[in-house]
Every structure is written in structure tokens, then in C-alpha cells.
Design a protein around this nucleic acid. Structure first.
Lengths: 235, 235
DNA sequence: CAGATGAGAGTGAACGTTCATTCACTTACA
DNA sequence: TGTAAGTGAATGAACGTTCACTCTCATCTG
């Protein structure tokens, strides 16, 4: 796990393995904490629970994390790094709508176990009130927002995306949709991967693609009369 | 507690006002608890906090609620009742798409203070892990789901809604969207009411209305080639 | 009408438990 | 032999809940 690159010097082997061992222990603690937090929530899960799950004494655990909050922060940071990889995927897509659909697919597949969705929802809830977590969460969100908004604006310039779109609000709404789906899938067992992905694809295609009528015109038309009453199956 | 209807006998005035007083106290506790839970979360907010917020001693508070969990359950129930009113609104709309848009508008306006969004998000997070809360939450969700799904199916029969729609998944996705927006609005200050409502309207209209190409055909088309490449601004 | 009665409203200290965190200590190893 | 890894009992604070108690007041009794 030596994520750095300066390993050409001699005598660095011992310290490098020591650092590796330390990081491995931190990962072990983080994994245990994620399981406990998913099971019981940040505040109901105790440090003793985490110690038991990690197979480690309390005193030793505190050698790796200063406090319970530090563990939560580390989890939020890990989440950020994991998500950042998804947005590289978006950057590489030529058509941002297809890129977003693929992004959503990967995200939903990532968030599939018992723990991940609960943890994700718990992080959001905690971020809304705990200023330290919120700062971190906002950083994640802003990175994601910037990546999506940039892709959509590029897509508008290239004709892939509806130019009448309120990009910032639309992006944030799609992120809200993703988080909401992650939570709701836990209790809605009929929301299988294939069905969810299929509906999501239709939704994004229709929502984001250019339309004949612009937003304003649409609103005018619809507030006066129903739009699609007389056509059952025709084009 | 004879909250039933056998009050035609005389001397019921005293007991009636006693019950009213009791309910008023329960409401006072619930309001205090909602404020504390929104501020600190279910598990970090202490009963002492709630007592202080309600201006009441601990011993007295326990005369009105058996436990902390009972308070949480009562809050979830109040939420359910409040939401049920919204779905009556949907039932009355002739065009279910417009009905859903109006429903979303009302919901987002309801969830506007500092407390309501945080409480809503906290309830969802807690529901995913606490079986008692989850049972309640699932009842709310299922009622909402049934109302929306029924409206959409009726809309399909009348030509308002795309017949190719996977109604159940679509409904649950819209609910997920609503919950997600409620949470994200707390940290995204640019998501003002008018901008959010405008984008939401466009999204629902485009997503739900009948389209020339059905879902299956759309999927085939898109997986082979990008759909909207050659048109920059034309109709 | 004076005063006794008792039930419900309300109090706040105390209970046992659990919490996050610490520390004096032992073990392993280079 | 010295340093880092690891232990687990101890600590004081805070938790949800209880309990013995007082206060209030409508009703009943003589």
C-alpha cells in the first residue's frame, strides 16, 4: 500500500514496511468501524463495539485514531476518494448523458452491500448537523458537482444536452436522486439493478436531451392545457 | 384512555379537557423533541435536552412517553399523518403528472425550516437500521407508493402518462428524488424554491409523458449509437 | 361551608449502566 | 536493549430511566 514513489533509497525498507503495517491496521479499524456504524449509527455504535469487531483492545485502537470523530472523518475521506474515481469515468465519456448513466450504474453497483447504503445515508444525515463532517461532505459534493456541471456544459456546447437546462440545479438534483435511491433500495426489494438502471436511463435521456420546446414554452403550454391527452400510441 | 366516542353522557366536560391537556403536553414534548433531534440526531440528543427544551422535568416527561423510542415513533407517526394529506391532493388531480408536480411543490415547501429537513433525513437513516422505526417508515412509504402508483396507472389509461413506464420503480425513484432534494437543499443554497420547482417540473413532464419511442426501442437505439449528436439547436 | 380525600401533574435527585478515553503495564522484535 | 505494538482495567462524565416526594384542585363528607 505504499502509495508514494520514493522507494529507490536503501535502508528505507524497514520504515516502509512499518508504515505499511500501520496503514493496514488503520484500514482494519476503518473496516470494523464502517460495519459498526452501518449497523448502529455513528452515535449508538460504541468504541468497544469497534474494538471487538476489529479484534483489538481499546488502548491499541487509540494509537491509530485520536478519537471517534477522527474515525468518522477518515471514513468520509475514503468515501470521497472512492467517488473521485467515478468522476474520472465521466470526464472520459464523449457524450455526457451516456457518461452520467454509466456513472450512475457504477455508483449503484458500488453501493450494494448491507453496509454501504446505510453508511452513506448516515453520513449524509450527520453531515447536515456536524460542522466538521459537513465541511468534508461539502468538499465531496462540490467536487462531484463541478465534474458533472462541467460535463453537462460541454455537452450543451456539443449539442448532446438541452441548452435550456438549469445546469447547477439539475446536477444537484441528480445527486439527490442518487443518494435517495441508495437509501430507498434498502427497503424496496423490487428495485433490482436491472429495473432501476433501465428506468434511470430513460429518465436521464429524456430529462437531459435537447427538446423541441424550450423550458419556458413548455411551462406556458402545460399550465394552460394538458399536453398529451389526444395521442394514445401515435407519434 | 377512552379516546373513543362514548361522550354523550353528562360530566364528560372535565375528562374531555383533561384529555385535551394531556394531548397538549404530548404535543409540547414532541415539538421539543423534534427540535433536539434535528439539532443533534436521535442518539446524541439526550432526554435531559428534550426536558430542558420542553421546560419540564424528566419524571414528568416519562408520564407522557414510555421511552425515548416511543417519542421517535410518535414523530414518525405525525410525519405520516402530515404526508397523507399530500396524497389526497394527488388523488384529486385529473392529470397525475400535474398532480405529482403540485405534490412535490407542496412537499418541498413543507420541508423548509432548519429542523424539518434534518429530521426527515435522520428519520430515513434511522429507519434503515431500527426495525421498529423501519416498520413505521415502510408503512408511510407504502401508503405514498400506492397513491402515486395508482395515480400513474390511471394516467396511463387516460393517455397522460407513458405506457412504457415501469410504474413501481419510477414511483420509488421519484420518492427517492424528493427525499434527496430535501437533504441536499440544506447545503446547496442556490437550490431556491423557484429554480428547484422549475427544474423538477421539466423533469417530471419529460420523464412521465408518453413518448414516440417506447422504452425498449429507446434502449436499443442508445446502446448502439449516440442519439442526439447531429442537432445543435434545430428542432 | 370547612375541611378531608385522593388522583393526577410535576419535581429532581439518584440509580445502574455505558460511554469515550487514558494509562501503567507487558510483549515482540530489530 | 530500546522502541513500537498491544493490553485491559480504571476513570469520570453522561446516559435513559425510576422513584419517593410535593403540589394542585375538583369532589365528597359532615
Amino acid at each position: 500500500m505504499g502509495q508514494g514513489g520514493k522507494d529507490d533509497a536503501p535502508a528505507s525498507t524497514a520504515s516502509a514496511t512499518a508504515i505499511d503495517a500501520r496503514e493496514a491496521q488503520q484500514q482494519r479499524i476503518l473496516a470494523a468501524a464502517m460495519a459498526c456504524f452501518a449497523r448502529s449509527g455513528f452515535h449508538k455504535a460504541s468504541m468497544q463495539d469497534i474494538c471487538a469487531e476489529a479484534g483489538m483492545s481499546a488502548g491499541n485502537l487509540y494509537r491509530y485514531f485520536r478519537s471517534k470523530e477522527a474515525i468518522i472523518a477518515a471514513i468520509a475521506e475514503a468515501e470521497r476518494v472512492r467517488n473521485a474515481a467515478l468522476f474520472d469515468l465521466l470526464q472520459r465519456a464523449e457524450d455526457p448523458v451516456r457518461g452520467l448513466i454509466e456513472l450512475a450504474r457504477c455508483y449503484l453497483r458500488d453501493m450494494q452491500g448491507r453496509d454501504a447504503p446505510m453508511l452513506c445515508t448516515e453520513i449524509i444525515a450527520e453531515a447536515l448537523r456536524n460542522p466538521e463532517i459537513r465541511t468534508m461532505f461539502e468538499r465531496n459534493i462540490n467536487e462531484a458537482h463541478a465534474a458533472c456541471a462541467h460535463a453537462l456544459r460541454q455537452g450543451i456546447a456539443q449539442g448532446y444536452v438541452d441548452p435550456g437546462l438549469d445546469v447547477d440545479v439539475a446536477v444537484r438534483m441528480l445527486m439527490a436522486l442518487g443518494d435517495g435511491i441508495v437509501a430507498h433500495r434498502v427497503i424496496a426489494d423490487f428495485m433490482t439493478d436491472d429495473r432501476t438502471e433501465a428506468v434511470l436511463e430513460v429518465m436521464l435521456e429524456r430529462f437531459l436531451r435537447p427538446h423541441a420546446a424550450s423550458t419556458v414554452v413548455l411551462a406556458d403550454t402545460l399550465s394552460s392545457q394538458p399536453a398529451a391527452a389526444p395521442l394514445p400510441t401515435s407519434a
